[in-house]
Amino acid sequence: MLVNQFLLLGAFLFCTGVYGVLARRNAVMVLMSIELMLNAVNINLLTFGYLHNAVSGQVFALFIIAVAAAEVAVGLAIILLIYRNRASINVDELDLMRG
C-alpha cells in the first residue's frame, strides 16, 4: 500500500468538507461537513502512526473523536437556540455582525 493513497483520500475528504462548510446553507449540514474534515485528519494521524510505528497517532485520533463529540453537542445546542430565536437555521441569513 502506498502512503499517498491514504493521505490523498484524507485530502479529498478534507476538501469536500471545506466545500460543504462554505457552500451549504443549512447549519446542521455545515456541522456535518466539519465532521468530515475532522475524520480526514484522523486518517492522516492513523496513517502517520502506521508509517512511523507510533502509538501516538491512535491516541490523538481518539482525542479528536472525543473533542468532535463535544463539538457536535455544543454546536447543535447553539443551532437549536438560533432556530428558536429566528425560526431559521440558514447560515447566510445570520448576518447580525454585518459591518
Binding site: 462554505l22 447560515v91 447566510d92 445570520l94 448576518d95 455582525m97 454585518r98 459591518g99
Partner: peptide
C-alpha cells in the same frame, strides 16, 4: 472599502 468584507456571513469569512 473594508466594510464590504465584513458581510457578517460566516461562510464569507470562511472562504
Amino acid at each position: 472599502g473594508l466594510r464590504v468584507i465584513q458581510s457578517g456571513k460566516v461562510q464569507g469569512y470562511g472562504a
